[in-house]
C-alpha cells in the first residue's frame, strides 16, 4: 500500500516554546515534504490529548498514533518498569553515555520485552533534554545538606528513593502550585532543569541553583506496534529519518536554551557547580540504593553494564 493516505496524530506534553515542540514540528515538516503531503502529521502540544499516561493508553488502544516525550516516562507504565533505570539519579555521566547505553546490544531484549508487555513500541530515541538540577532556599554542597529538606520532586519512585536515602522529605505538589508553595515555604526546594527554573520564574522564589545534572532523559517517539507493522518499509524509513533529524534539532535547541538559562540563573541567584558541589560524596551515599531492583525491576546486571560503559 505505497500510495495510502495516512494521518498521524502526534501528542506531547510540552508548551509551544519547548524544544520538544520544535522537534515535533520539524518531524511534521520533513515527513510531509518527503511524502508530498500523502502523510499528514497533526501535532498536539500541551497535553491537549491528555497527560502522558493518558496518551500511552490511547496509543495502546489505537486511538493515537504517536507520542513524543522522554524515555523516563516509559518506566511508569505497567510492563515498562525496566525503564525506571533511565531515571536513576547520578547514573549517567552525560548525554552520549545515556544514548550509547540505550542503543547498546544488551538493551535490545529490554526494549522487546517492554514492547510485548506494554503494547507500546519505541520507534526511535535521540535528542538531548535539559538534565535536572535542584533549586533550594539554602545552599547544598554535601550529602548532609539534604537532611530535612522539604523538596518537591517528580512523582517517580527512583527519585523518591534517592531523596529519602539522602534524608530529605520529598513532597508531591502540582506544578501549577509550585511557585506559590516555594514562595510561602510549603517546600524549601524542588528539582527541575535550568530551563524550567527560568521559564516558570522559580528563581524569583529560590536563592540557589545546584547544577547536579543528576537525572537525564532522551526524546523518544512512541507508536502503536500494530499500526507500525502495517506501514510500508519505505514509509517506516521516512518516519525514522525524520525522527532522527528531529532529535538532532532538539539537542541543538536544548543546548542553546540551557546556555541562556544558566546565564540568567548566574545573574539572578547563586549557582553552585561541582567541585564545590560534592557529587562524588552524594554518589557514594546512594551506593547500593537500587541494587535490590537489579533482577526484579530490570534484568540482573543491567545497572553494572551501564556503569561499565
Amino acid at each position: 500500500t505505497e500510495d495510502q493516505e495516512i494521518t498521524i496524530k502526534l501528542g506531547h506534553i510540552r508548551d509551544a516554546a519547548h524544544p520538544t515542540h520544535m522537534g515535533a514540528l520539524e518531524f511534521k515538516r520533513l515527513v510531509e515534504a518527503e511524502t508530498d503531503g500523502r502523510i499528514t502529521v497533526n501535532v498536539f502540544p500541551n497535553s491537549q490529548l491528555g497527560g502522558i499516561q493518558e496518551m500511552f493508553t490511547q496509543i495502546r488502544s489505537g486511538d493515537l498514533e504517536m507520542v513524543y516525550g522522554g524515555i523516563n516516562t516509559y518506566g511508569f507504565t505497567e510492563g515498562g518498569d525496566a525503564f525506571e533505570i533511565t531515571a536513576i539519579p547520578f547514573l549517567y555521566r552525560d548525554y552520549e553515555h545515556m544514548l550509547n547505553s540505550l542503543k547498546a546490544d544488551f538493551f535490545v531484549p529490554v526494549f522487546e520485552d517492554a514492547e510485548e508487555r506494554t503494547g507500546i513500541k519505541v520507534m526511535n530515541i535521540g535528542g538531548d533534554t535539559a538534565p535536572r538540577g535542584l533549586t533550594a532556599s539554602r545552599p547544598i554542597r554535601e550529602p548532609a545538606d539534604f537532611r530535612g529538606l522539604k523538596i518537591r520532586t517528580a512523582a517517580s519512585e527512583v527519585v523518591l528513593r534517592a531523596m529519602q536515602g539522602l534524608g530529605a522529605l520529598p513532597q508531591q505538589i502540582a506544578f501549577a502550585d509550585l511557585y506559590v508553595s516555594l514562595k510561602t515555604g510549603v517546600v524549601d526546594a524542588q528539582e527541575n532543569g535550568a530551563i524550567t527554573v527560568v521559564n516558570a520564574s522559580l528563581y524569583e522564589v529560590q536563592d540557589y541553583y545546584m547544577k547536579t545534572d543528576y537525572i537525564r532523559d532522551i526524546e523518544t517517539f512512541y507508536v502503536n506496534p500494530a499500526w507500525w507493522d502495517d506501514l510500508s518499509a519505505a514509509d517506516q524509513k521516512t518516519l525514522m529519518d525524520a525522527s532522527d533529524a528531529a532529535g538532532e534539532l532538539v539537542t541543538e535547541l536544548t543546548a542553546d536554551q540551557l546556555d541562556a538559562a544558566l546565564d540568567t540563573l548566574d545573574q539572578e541567584i547563586t549557582v553552585i557547580r561541582p567541585p564545590e558541589l560534592n557529587l562524588a560524596a552524594v554518589r557514594s551515599e546512594l551506593e547500593g540504593a537500587y541494587e535490590d531492583w537489579d533482577g526484579t525491576k530490570w534484568p540482573a546486571g543491567l545497572l553494572a553494564k551501564i556503569r561499565g560503559m
Binding site: 499516561q53 500511552f56 493508553t57 495502546r60 488502544s61 511508569f76 507504565t77 505497567e78 510492563g79 506494554t118 512523582a155 519512585e157 523518591l160 508531591q172
Partner: peptide
C-alpha cells in the same frame, strides 16, 4: 469498563494502586 481494564496497568503516581 474497557477503560477500567486498560487502567489496571497504570498506578497512581506515588501509590501502587491502579488508577
Amino acid at each position: 469498563f474497557m477503560v477500567v481494564e486498560g487502567r489496571m496497568g497504570i498506578p497512581f503516581e506515588t501509590w501502587r494502586l491502579p488508577t
